[in-house]
Design a protein around this nucleic acid. Sequence first.
DNA 1: GTAGGTGCAAATCCTTTGCAAGTGA
DNA 2: TCACTTGCAAAGGATTTGCACCTAC
Lengths: 170, 170
Amino acid sequence: MAKAAEAKPQHDAPEWAAFYDCLRRKGLRRTSQRDTIFDVFMRSQKHLSSEDLYRRVREMDPKVGFTTVYRTLNLLSECGLAIRSQFGDGLTRYEPGFNTTHHDHLICVECGNVTEFFSAQLEHVQDEIVSRHGFEMQEHSLRIWGMCRACRRNVKSMKKPAASLPHRHA
Amino acid sequence: MAKAAEAKPQHDAPEWAAFYDCLRRKGLRRTSQRDTIFDVFMRSQKHLSSEDLYRRVREMDPKVGFTTVYRTLNLLSECGLAIRSQFGDGLTRYEPGFNTTHHDHLICVECGNVTEFFSAQLEHVQDEIVSRHGFEMQEHSLRIWGMCRACRRNVKSMKKPAASLPHRHA
DNA sequence: GTAGGTGCAAATCCTTTGCAAGTGA
DNA sequence: TCACTTGCAAAGGATTTGCACCTAC
């Protein structure tokens, strides 16, 4: 029903090919909802919650239900086209996972901003740790909470003591 | 009511002093429930969920409610006497935090075992990353999922493909 | 036509809170 | 005494599922 998908001619872009491959491999169908959700997701800023994405999708097509957004995010996660993260606020967040490389996250407890970083040295140290333990690594995640540069300045000038989130889950 | 606390003479051990300090600082009272919960918690294996701890506490004193266990774990977290972790199965896990140093976790996706490790080199790399971004680090957590040595052997000999948890949250 | 997809509503699961009755200082 | 505690029950909040209707193939 929704013409959003048909109205967009960029469906031969590589991420769309990967998406359709994912559907094909799983024997699933192409639908206008899935197209819309994927389109909005790939264009969005990173680290959206399923609710965030749902709201954005509804702007494109108000008939799409939350369940479909939720199930599509699971589907994309399974295909590696979405990457799940949890930053301790109780929400699962997603970022597009096409042609992205592994990275970790700096999370500001003051403003909530998430900064990505990658360190080859860090990866190397991890590899060493893993092999020392006879482990076969499948996935890893380093999260660093603290206060970002901007917030440190603000807090200092406002003479306000640093906020501490009451219930962060490391 | 429960005499468990009175029956145990080791309450002058340093972790108990820290616990009572924590209560005093917060203007809270010493109760038999809190004593029992703290006692069981400090004696337990690491990485218990609140439900796990609740079950163990009930073996000592069946009248203690889940709410009290839950609230006591929050209290201990605030005092640094319990450390929260999440390993991706949706449960918050706790480990005693008295006289412990920071460490990170290797999580086996096959058997669920959690191995702790510490790497000074890793910490050093993190410090560098943080200062490069002008961040003030408050907390950090590295989790590595994979298959432990024992499970790798098992899987190989059973010719069973490696299991992958359906919904891990990195 | 039919297997798969959708979206509403409802269930689940863990976590958190309201409140009346109990208890430590 | 009296504020703090407790534990039941119930609420919250994110996630997941059942099911009747819809739709791509």
